Amino acid sequence: MENSQWNTEVNALLFRIQTQDKLALKQLYELTSSKLLGLIYRIIKDHAEAEELLQEVFIKVWHQADKYRGEGSALAWLCVMARNASLDRLRKAQKHPHISTDEHQEFISSLTEEFDESSNIALNRCLYKLKEQARESVLLSYVHGYSHSELAHKMAVPLGTMKAWIRRGLQELKLCLKP
């Protein structure tokens, strides 16, 4: 299935779920669960817990689908739900993922390869237009679950600098990805 057709299908399924269509939820799960599980696992670092949390995310989707208004990508909306649920789980367990400085490049490379495999060429292109510190900061924060203060400490920069890198990186991504 072509990427734009896939995105259209995911959007349509979310709107069907708003009408309590159980088949639409099943189809949405089939289309998106592997991507969301990968995102959750990168944050949680425990496969069984990630699978459990994925189920909880889809229960939230069922109950909160009416909050999706069709503005922006449905997948992005789902990813935000999965990321937030993952971070909430980490906070409750009071544990955080750890990546050494040497692993930053490996992590970014693996993530970029994943985007290539899922035909998300535009996102990949836009990520690599960012300055290196902004790209790393955005990816480590939004995909891997680091807080701004954790990243500032890890990268040895002031908190304000870290927030600026992330804010600018997100703004540049948004502009780059606009149709």
Rank of each mutant, 00 (worst) to 15 (best):
M1T: 09
E2M: 09
N3G: 06
N3K: 11
N3F: 13
W6E: 06
E9Y: 07
V10E: 03
A12T: 02
R16E: 08
I17Y: 05
K22Y: 08
L23Q: 12
A24E: 07
A24D: 06
L25E: 04
L25R: 05
L25A: 06
K26V: 10
L28Y: 00
Y29Q: 02
E30R: 11
L31Q: 06
L31G: 02
T32V: 10
T32P: 07
S33C: 11
S33R: 03
S33D: 01
S34E: 14
S34F: 13
S34G: 09
K35W: 11
L36G: 06
L37P: 00
G38K: 04
G38V: 10
L39Y: 07
R42Q: 11
R42W: 05
I43D: 05
H47R: 14
E49I: 06
A50M: 04
E52R: 10
L54D: 02
L54P: 00
L54C: 04
Q55E: 14
Q55S: 13
V57W: 02
V57D: 01
I59L: 11
K60E: 06
V61L: 08
V61K: 04
W62P: 04
H63T: 08
H63R: 14
H63A: 09
A65T: 02
A65C: 09
K67P: 05
Y68M: 04
Y68R: 02
R69W: 11
G70R: 09
E71D: 15
G72V: 08
S73Y: 14
L75E: 14
A76M: 15
W77P: 08
C79H: 13
A82F: 07
R83I: 05
R83M: 11
S86A: 15
L90D: 07
K92L: 13
A93F: 08
K95R: 15
H96P: 02
H96F: 12
H96L: 12
P97Q: 12
H98G: 11
S100F: 06
T101K: 13
T101C: 13
H104G: 10
H104S: 10
Q105M: 14
E106F: 15
I108Q: 03
S109D: 14
S110K: 15
T112N: 15
E114M: 09
F115K: 13
F115D: 09
F115Q: 07
D116A: 15
N120I: 10
N120A: 11
L123P: 06
N124T: 15
R125L: 10
L127Q: 04
Y128W: 15
Y128T: 07
Y128K: 11
K131P: 12
E132N: 13
E132R: 12
R135N: 04
S137L: 07
L140V: 08
S141D: 05
V143N: 08
H148L: 11
S149V: 09
L151P: 00
H153R: 03
M155H: 04
L159W: 05
G160F: 02
T161Q: 00
T161S: 05
M162L: 06
M162K: 00
K163D: 02
A164R: 00
I166T: 00
R167G: 00
G169D: 01
G169K: 01
L170S: 01
Q171C: 01
L173A: 01
L175I: 02
K178E: 08
K178G: 03
K178H: 05
P179T: 02
P179I: 01
